[in-house]
Design a binder for these strands. Structure first.
Lengths: 211, 211
DNA sequence: TAGATTGTTAATCGATTAACAATC
DNA sequence: TAGATTGTTAATCGATTAACAATC
């Protein structure tokens, strides 16, 4: 909506993280240039598709005989994906999964600050990995003060809808839901389902040749 | 490959879990029939698309004036997705995330047995939630004996590629990788990246209107 | 220069949407 | 019956692939 020619397909967008992952790996090995063919071979896609995708985000065209500059490309993709504008997020539910995510180091690379977790049980209140775990009634106050719009929901399935209603009331508009339950939310709130079992089942399907 | 007319698009396949989640929610509320329009409204997609998708997997056509039988549809989708053929899986890395997943109850509904975790550190060996945590050197033996082809990789990023090589050598052919690293694998091994930060970043992008 | 690799235009392919007849 | 809802055929739309000229 800011850029003039703004034609990036959803499909292309969804492939960007894979490019980024691969490119960072190459960068770590000291590689300076990659060809579209190399990326394509590694990721199991077509080289023309890679070139088209990269052309969408690259600030510098690829050089014939060399390919694309790895470092530059990483920056371009990160910028494109918005990893440079910081977002605050909270975790709802400080059980095993919630605590593991709270302690997870990887978010900072993506422009995400996970600032705290919340739990209904007083026994869970305290801190994990240097980050605070608050009781649920602190939620409205804290998310307003920090402008938090994004929540990671890691409560047990039976508690998910109630917790969802509560955080939506408090002002959350985007939810990453780990509970294997469909969530009813009002218009304007987006839910993304991170269903571990579904991911795993899909993987099994792939490897066993799902019909 | 088993069924004669075997034309299910990848796109349709990827929508099935969402239908399933919604339908199970409705079933839990005692709803017996749903119309394609109701599903479409809840999921934010088109009703015609829903009908097309459901027609692909439903063993019974929808009834005009009623819609589709919820319970039957759930069974059909589960059968279609292969949730009825059981698969054994193991977890590599018994840190916070690995232990949380080991204790996770949700896999059994999807035809997946997570039978054990493995960790390089002797300190982690033992049991979590009634399931064993073995030292890494037990891996080849145990996966062969249990016919395990699927592994969930939850080791730290720096250890991911080495662990990957090790389990691929041992006979794993499908990997659900939680480490935010690109993995080099030989042909025939499939990797699925479960990058929490990417998921969260994508969600943020959606809600803030990614270009 | 020669040749590898890029970017782009046109053609194919697949998936979604629109229109409408069929059905309980 | 009337009407809501389905299933299907045809049309549109978008994305991928193929072919090839441009470039360092």
């Amino acid at each position: 909506m800011n850029h003039a020619e703004n034609a990036v397909s959803k499909a292309a967008l969804s492939r960007m993280p894979a490019y980024l992952r691969f490119l960072k790996g190459e960068e770590g090995k000291g590689v300076q240039y990659v060809s579209s063919a190399a990326v394509a071979a590694a990721l199991g896609v077509s080289a023309v598709g890679v070139r088209k995708d990269l052309a969408l985000v690259s600030s510098l065209p690829g050089k014939p005989r060399f390919g694309f500059e790895v470092h530059r490309l990483i920056e371009d993709i990160e910028k494109f994906l918005g990893y440079h504008r910081w977002t605050n997020a909270v975790i709802i539910g400080a059980g095993g999964l919630g605590r593991a995510i709270l302690a997870y180091e990887g978010f900072e690379n993506y422009g995400i600050h996970v600032i705290a977790a919340f739990d209904a049980s007083p026994a869970k209140v305290g801190a994990v990995g240097g980050k605070p775990v608050y009781p649920m009634d602190r939620l409205p106050d804290i998310i307003v003060r920090n402008g938090v719009k994004v929540a990671i929901l890691t409560v047990p399935r039976a508690a998910a809808q109630a917790a969802c209603d509560e955080i939506v009331n408090a002002g959350i508009t985007a939810i990453l839901n780990f509970a294997p339950v469909y969530l009813h939310v009002p218009e304007g709130v987006s839910v993304r389902y991170e269903d571990l079992a579904v991911s795993l089942a899909a993987l099994c399907g792939e490897s066993t040749g799902n019909q």
